[in-house]
Design a protein around this nucleic acid. Structure first.
Lengths: 192, 192
DNA sequence: AGCACCGATGTCACGCCGCGACATCAACTT
DNA sequence: AAGTTGATGTCGCGGCGTGACATCGGTGCT
């Protein structure tokens, strides 16, 4: 393969992030992005399915990593715990912290992009369901563990993001799990 | 107000559902829908924000009803229970079971529409969070109860739809809740 | 009756989106 | 040098969604 690989996708990503921050997501057209990256719109759509996908290009890789972690887990007899732990231990900052910051800023500023975020979350949970079943977990249990686990973690994650990454994600996650326990068993120990 | 009100929106909905079933969602253009309903595309967009919204027009009304049910609940000391019960007791068939069937069929056949469904689910959960907080539930507990409760119910709901509405939704919901309880407390009764 | 008003719809025009078909150009291979 | 391969550009199209404005038919008031 030639060695000019990646140049365009990379420039497109940076250009898009910049423009989204400067003038907003909706107000930025693909033409502008392509112009700043010095390619045509046609090239843009060869790398990204649509304008929003620029912000979520990595998610497929993340999903694969997380699912593999489930398949590699030493013990899945406690599927809910497995799911939340894997999520909490993942390195969400990734290679470029700056790009990550821009990503969050743009997504937070655009309700329409939250949708896309939801879908990615859903995809990951679906991957978990499949992986758990492969590990022998019964279907309904797998669905519950994956979906509930994702929700529990996402609450911890939101708190973590709010703290700018300063808080301990694992601790927040444990706290959320503990709270869930009291919610599931109301009127018992821990409520009064 | 004139008395020909509603005629167009109704015809557009029926026309859209028919065409979606006949030739698929993606393959159906707004022009075709409008033609069959004997209006112009401009009129279509006056009633529906976009093509997909035809399938989700009612969801805002549903959301308002569910949220109000939380506000009217006699006791919210067990928020998770409140959420799932309200969802399980709602009349999901609505006025027309046939339209509902078409809706499900079209959504199930289109991954892109599942996204929209997710968003609506998320909106409802967000409404629950707000309502629970108004009822005095602490923020994190409200978030957990709303999001986890929605997930638990959605699993029961999926099973119910699979049974064509024959199964008892409340019972399925209870079963899911019971399973969640065993998942949250692993290594105890029910696991070995 | 006559008239002013108003809401639903149509007409026109526009810009953006996403992609198929094909041409081009650089680098690598033999 | 010639062929191959992969990235990119050019052209053109059909669908999407909306703003601006015209139209037309009831409504209500005089």
């Amino acid at each position: 393969m030639p060695r000019w690989e990646q140049g365009s996708a990379d420039r497109l990503t940076r250009a898009a992030l910049e423009l989204f921050e400067e003038q907003g997501f909706e107000s930025t057209s693909v033409v502008e992005i392509a112009d700043r990256a010095r390619v045509t719109t046609r090239t843009f759509f060869r790398y990204f399915a649509d304008k929003a996908e620029v912000l979520f290009a990595e998610s497929e890789r993340i999903r694969a990593t997380l699912v593999q972690a489930v398949l590699d887990a030493p013990d899945v007899s406690e599927p809910l715990h497995v799911v939340t732990t894997i999520l909490a231990e993942f390195d969400w900052t990734g290679p470029g912290m700056e790009l990550q910051r821009q990503r969050h800023a743009v997504i937070a500023a655009n309700p329409g992009l939250l949708e896309r975020d939801l879908i990615k979350q859903h995809d990951i949970a679906t991957g978990f369901i499949d992986a758990l079943q492969r590990r022998g977990v019964e279907e309904t249990a797998a669905r519950l563990a994956a979906r509930v686990g994702s929700q529990v973690f996402s609450i911890a994650y939101a708190q973590w993001v709010e703290s700018d990454g300063a808080a301990d994600l694992a601790k927040l996650n444990d706290a959320a799990m503990a709270l869930l326990e009291t919610l599931v068993r109301p009127g018992r120990a821990g409520t009064a």
